[in-house]
Nucleic acid binder design. Structure first.
Length: 422
RNA sequence: GGAGAGUUGGCUGAGCGGUUGAAAGCACUCGAUUUGAAAUCGAGCAAGGUGGCAACACCUUCCGGGGUUCGAAUCCCUGACUCUCCGCCA
């Protein structure tokens, strides 16, 4: 949610920044509605003041058993006038919020400008692609040939975009999750949290999935929604709270199942487990003071990278362009892992700084004791990492010509010391 | 699923139609005392908004929404959540 004061004072900048995301100018409309709202608000407040005063007088007269019928008539008229103004103010408020809640965050100034992923900028490569003396297979070929990955069976139970893992492959996914959580909690300073995956509507509003992205979400009777990412629950931990300054920054990590309808992705990545309705992800969330969030984004990115480095898998990092960023972000890095079977890079993590955008929606603040002010927190989130995609990157990068694949060194202890799946 | 109780400031918690935006305590900030600290004493301390150059004034907010009333934290309806007991159940 945007700060209306900022828009009032910097309408040109506001429009320019949104234009970078391909959004038309709104400041003029916003300011006009805001002025109308404030106008009726001010008049309404005058009447409220009058009513309060008259009511006090009435109370006084009544306590002395004196006649107050004159004042009662007066207050009745005030109340009628108030009602009109109140309705007007409500209408204007709804209009204003209707616009504001659907506008994405402003991009940070160091974000490359562009309309889509073509303008993303590669900023780093780590490691190098493995050399194979055979034609590397896709993860689903490997998995299906080994009899450990079953899409048909999954669809029998749940339709398309689900997968069933068996035996050692299922164990490998569990090992990966375990490894990631251990790493983040013991070395990267995150606190492990186990959250619900069903949430109420307001929770999804807080992080910005609602109201705009209803179609991407699954809902389950009685105002329950399935989370599309643990960002939702981890970030909403500070919803409606004033956090003690000394506790900042807060760093949370959680492994959850994530649920996405993939409504806009019909026909895309239908084969394999790149894009499922349900997948496991280890998420990282940081809650910081405003001046800390830029550094925290770099730190978070390093935490996510550390997993792929430990696994020794080639990846690159891109800064998302203004047109490719998510709704709540002001800056986003994607980590893209190398998939030899597809012969391309694929997103495996997305780390974003949301500034105070989500905080304003959630009303999450901290007390700045030095200046004796309450201020909005900054929130950040990143995958650390998407477990399913990490699993397939291991399969493809560690595959052997005979259809087997090796277990990365760091995971062997988590796999009862086996070093190969065949 | 049935019965009941609750939701008040950063926290604990009083208030149950009119000087209550809210007692008291804790926490926090400043000051006094002290060699320093603790203890003690004094003072301050909710948020959001509107108007104003400002000093400041005013409005709103006691879980959300609606209502009764001249006036609501307080009464009524409704929704969400929490707790207790019973039933059922992983």
């Amino acid at each position: 949610m945007h700060n209306i004061h900022f828009i009032r004072e910097n309408p040109v900048e506001f429009d320019n920044q949104l234009k970078k995301r391909g959004i038309k100018s709104f400041s003029e409309t916003i300011i006009k509605i805001d002025e109308e709202k404030r106008k009726s608000q001010t008049s309404l407040q005058k009447l409220q003041e009058e009513r309060n005063n008259v009511s006090k007088e009435i109370g006084l007269l009544k306590s002395k058993n004196q006649d107050s019928s004159e004042l009662l008539k007066k207050v009745e008229k005030i109340k009628n006038d108030m009602q009109v103004l109140k309705e007007l103010e409500d209408i204007k408020n709804d209009e204003l919020n209707g616009i504001l809640k659907n506008l994405p965050n402003l991009p940070s100034n160091d974000v490359p400008v562009g309309l889509d992923e073509k303008s993303n900028v590669e900023i780093k490569k780590w490691g190098s692609p493995p050399n194979f003396d055979f034609k590397p297979k896709n993860h689903y070929e490997i998995g299906e040939n080994l009899g450990l990955m079953d899409f048909e069976l999954a669809s029998k139970l749940s339709g398309s975009r689900f997968v069933i893992l068996r035996g050692m492959l299922s164990k490998l996914e569990r090992a990966l999750t375990q490894y990631m959580l251990d790493k983040h909690t013991t070395q990267n300073g995150y606190t492990e949290i186990n959250t619900p995956v069903l949430v109420k509507e307001h929770t999804l509003y807080g992080t910005g999935q609602l109201p705009k992205f209803v179609d991407d979400l699954f809902t389950v009777g009685d105002d329950f929604w399935l989370i599309p990412t643990a960002e939702v629950t981890l970030t909403n931990i500070v919803r409606e709270t004033i956090v003690n300054e000394n506790l900042l920054p807060l760093r949370f990590t959680s492994n959850t199942q994530c649920f996405r309808s993939e409504a806009g992705a019909a026909g895309k990545d239908t084969r394999g487990m790149i894009r499922s309705h349900q997948f496991s992800k280890v998420e990282l969330v940081s809650i910081t003071k405003p001046e800390q969030s830029n550094d925290e984004l770099e730190r978070m990115l390093k935490s996510a990278e550390s997993i792929l480095q430990d696994l020794n898998i080639h990846y690159r990092i891109v800064t998302l362009s203004t047109g490719d960023m998510g709704f709540a972000a002001n800056k986003t890095y994607d980590i893209e892992v190398w998939l030899p079977g597809e012969n391309k890079y694929r997103e495996i993590s997305s780390c974003s700084n949301c500034g105070d955008f989500q905080s304003r929606r959630m009303n999450s603040r901290f007390k700045n004791t030095k200046e004796n002010k309450t201020e909005y927190l900054h929130t950040l989130n990143g995958s650390g990492l998407a477990v399913g995609r990490t699993l397939i990157s291991i399969m493809e990068n560690y595959q052997n010509s005979d259809g087997s694949f090796n277990i990365p060194k760091v995971l062997i202890p988590y796999m009862n010391n086996i070093d190969k799946i065949h």
